[in-house]
Amino acid sequence: MIDVIDLKKDFQGNHVLNGIDLHIDKGDIVVITGPSGSGKSTFLRCLNCMEDPSGGQIIFNGVDIADMKVDINIHRRHMGMVFQHFNLFNNKTVLQNISLAPIHVRKTDKKEKTSKKKIIEEENARAMKLLERIGLADKANVYPATLSGGQKQRVAIVRALAMNPDVILFDEPTSALDPEMVGEVLDLMKELAQDGMTMVIVTHEMGFAKEVANRVLFIDEGKIKEDEPPEEFFGNPKNPRLKEFLSKVLV
């Protein structure tokens, strides 16, 4: 589904990604770990071209989206993203946060025959279903400022889900949460995994990686240094830097 070929990224001469090759299949749950500043976020943000790669290719559903000539907005609709700091739209209600993009996409689609009013109704109903699924239907009409961190992140996840993406990218989705709220977010992510969603997740939640991932990656110095199933990754790490890293994070 995604083929990353020799991906490079530098910020004004600061080489952050030094040639990353990665193949992601449909249904893969890829967890990415690595020391702080090693380029994990940069890599994830290059996958949907939130950062423009300096070199290499990202073949997504057969199209090289690193090519500046493609209309990136169309491809991003098939690639959800969940941020560390949630980034819910502050000026929109919880329901609108979820239905806004699907409504906009259908309204501007020339092939769409449904009336605008009907589109809004349908998409709001779909957003409501998603809210019911995460138990936040009663929050549909409040603004995000009134939600807890865990609630915000779960809304952010279903906002990504509402676009029916082929893959969802997560950048440390639980790092900004109070400890007691981490569980509810990880549980929702587990559900998505069970439903067969393809996911790429930067996280330091090693328990989650062991339980849910089918591949765990170690990124260091802008390169993938290890790419193994979790049993091998945690049970028999080969890269010396990974051994050192695991001894610090697994206590």
């Binding site: 949907n48 939130m50 907005n73 991003r76 959800g80 980034n87 806004l100 993009a101």
Partner: peptide, 18 residues
């Protein structure tokens, strides 16, 4: 306005102008 607001909009496929 937090840059995250723009990023979140772009991430769901909205254009810069939208």
């Amino acid at each position: 306005v937090d840059v995250g607001q723009m990023e979140a909009g772009r991430a769901v496929g909205l254009s810069f102008a939208t």
